Amino acid sequence: MKWIGRRQSDNVEDRRGMSGGGKAIVGGGFLGIVILLLSIFGGDQVQQFLPALEQLNQNQSTSQPAESRVLTAEEEKTGAFVKTIFADTEDIWGKIFQENNMQYQEPKMVLFTDAVETACGSATSASGPFYCPGDQKVYLDFAFFQELQTKFGAKGGDFAVAYVIAHEVGHHIQTLLGTSEKVRQLQQGKNEVEANKLSVALELQADFYAGLWTKYNQQNLDLDDLDEAMSAAQAVGDDAIQSRMQGQVVPESFTHGTSEQRKYWFMKGYKTGDIRQGDTFAEMN
């Protein structure tokens, strides 16, 4: 992606030089990976796993003093890249909201290493990237992207990072438009299968918003950027994750959508460039 020399966001807080937040994971193993898979690209849904994640931390952590260190040159570069992508989300969503006679409220982003405190509770890198509606912040640990390639078989690349950020900002859009709150209300009283269907629709809409953002940002794309996004979407489909981790697929337990669904909705956002085409809930019925 073409990003060097462009505007960087002032809404990114880089905490990567502050290690651990007073805790260090000892082991973690398979259980930590499972929690990562459950909450991958989690958006609002990550909140339901945070209590269990905190309990896991208590059981598998040892206290140690928080440490500060100087970021490496590579870390500084990735931070600049993220700030540029986040600035793109601010500019583009500001434009889209203005086109629809609305005022965009910019979220913030926190880059962290190992562990972080949020308005939604404590989290570690095992929670994957997520958006917390309580403080309207996107949280990101770059360890996730290594996992995306080594454990889930994604192609990687800078636009895989951009896709993840755009997806999480999509959850912010849902918060601003009231969609997330409506889904939470609809999920009350539903059985697990029906509640999961609503979660899938919410996640697929965030993928649609990521594709829509990409359409508006296409002048900055490189030739292989869409392939990188599709590879990431393929890797984190519920069916792909379940097949890889447990050897079987259970559609009733899906919370984020299949690989094909995630790719379809991203590309629908990209091809249409029209926010009104993102009613994933209507197509789930």
Rank of each mutant, 00 (worst) to 15 (best):
M1D: 03
K2S: 01
W3R: 11
R7D: 06
D10E: 02
N11P: 05
D14A: 07
M18P: 01
S19Y: 13
A24C: 01
I25E: 04
V26M: 15
G27Q: 06
L36M: 14
L38Y: 10
L38V: 09
D44K: 08
D44I: 09
Q45F: 06
F49E: 10
P51Y: 02
L56A: 09
N57W: 10
T62W: 02
P65F: 08
P65L: 12
A66V: 14
E67W: 06
S68D: 08
V70C: 05
T72G: 11
A73P: 07
T78D: 14
A80N: 04
A80D: 12
V82I: 15
E90Y: 01
I92Q: 02
I92M: 02
I96M: 03
I96F: 01
F97G: 05
Q98A: 13
N100T: 10
N100Y: 00
M102V: 03
Q103S: 14
Q103D: 13
Y104Q: 13
E106C: 12
K108E: 11
M109S: 00
M109H: 03
A115F: 00
A119L: 08
Y131M: 11
C132A: 02
P133N: 12
P133H: 03
G134A: 04
K137D: 00
V138C: 04
Y139L: 11
F144T: 10
F145K: 14
Q146V: 14
Q146I: 13
Q149E: 12
K151M: 07
K151G: 00
G153E: 11
A154P: 07
G157A: 03
F159V: 03
V161Q: 08
A162K: 09
A162E: 07
Y163M: 13
I165K: 05
I165G: 02
I165W: 01
A166L: 11
H167N: 06
E168Q: 10
G170Y: 00
H171L: 03
H172Y: 00
L177D: 00
S180P: 11
K182M: 02
V183M: 07
Q187L: 04
Q188V: 05
N191Q: 05
N191T: 03
A195K: 01
N196I: 11
N196R: 09
L198H: 04
L198M: 10
L198R: 09
V200T: 02
L202H: 08
G211N: 07
G211S: 05
L212C: 03
T214A: 14
K215G: 05
Y216Q: 13
N217S: 15
Q219V: 08
N220T: 12
N220D: 07
D222T: 15
D224P: 06
L226V: 15
A232I: 14
A240V: 14
G247P: 04
G247C: 05
V249K: 01
V250E: 14
T258S: 06
R262S: 06
M267Q: 12
M267H: 02
I275A: 10
Q277F: 07
F281K: 05
F281Q: 03
E283V: 15
